[in-house]
Amino acid sequence: MLAAKPLLEVHDLRTYFLTDQGDVRAVDGISFSMNEGERLGVVGESGSGKSVTAASIMGLIDPPGAIVGGEIRFRGRDLVSLSEREMQRIRGREIAIIFQDPMTALDPVFTIGSQMTETLRIHRNMTKKEARTVAIDTLRDVHIPSPEKRFRDYPHQFSGGMRQRVVIAMALLCDPTLLIADEPTTALDVTSQAQVMDLMLGLANDRGTAVMLITHDLGVVAGFCENVQVMYAGEIIERGDAKSLYANPEHPYTRGLLHSVPRLDEESKTLYSIRGSAPSLTTPPQGCRFWPRCDRATDLCVSERPEPCHGEDTNECACHFAGELHRPHQGVDA
């Protein structure tokens, strides 16, 4: 069997925000790859760099932010070196993104129909009539009831969940090979979230679209992604196939995170809690960035940065003690 050719290869990407208080190293040397049709979850808490990763891939980093190093290869082309004009041709057509707030993608003063047909006419040179047919079909694909009628509605006439579906429809108009979904259901209620995730899973399967799902919610990832990578303080600290990563997390942060979430199927008493809070990205700790909060940090962790994830293997962990964590230790396994 031929090895699948990576669709996206990110190598040693660094995206910094250059501020008066110093450089904020939002993304600091991450490497990973994604195959065609793969569903990858990028998990992390606020400030971990997951959204900046997405924005870097899309070429949406504005000053004072800048990609200061590394490369992002999409089907072999380095996106970092492309001009804005060239990038525009890739954005939307080959890589599409949806955000947490659907209104960032919708213009309140135009009907959703006119916004959808505009996209199709610019990107796919369609006539007005063709565009209308495709737009209505796509609205039907995302389960908008009576799409011919809703085609003429303005964004404010849709509920939050419906609006996010409209945005998904717009993202799919040009049949992208990669869809980046940045916290797509965070603003939605749990029943709408279930609707949207169910819809995205069906569409990704039907169309073979690769999806990068960026979220803080470990539960949403569990039901959607084949592979997961965990980010902390601008680095990927662990990656793996979802089943083994959740069952046997190697990194103390991943373990801590998984044990600190209350679960619907358990009646837990005391939650494990990771002490302290995320470090400054301007002056991150020397050595391992997680050591100030880690239960098993040693002198080695304080002085030396663990080998980062290279993005070459499916299962990787950036911890000096990776592979040794399965023996029970105080706290996390309690």
């Binding site: 749990v190 029943t191 979230q193 279930a194 995730m197 919610d217 470990l218 539960g219 949403v220 990832v221 569990a222 039901g223 992604c225 979802a242 089943k243 959740y246 069952a247 998984l258 979430v261 679960r263 619907l264 199927d265």
Partner: peptide, 15 residues
């Protein structure tokens, strides 16, 4: 029942 079924469980084996 519906609410409970909509809540994701952080465990791919269960999901």
């Amino acid at each position: 029942h519906s609410l409970m079924s909509a809540v994701p469980i952080p465990d791919p084996a269960i999901e």
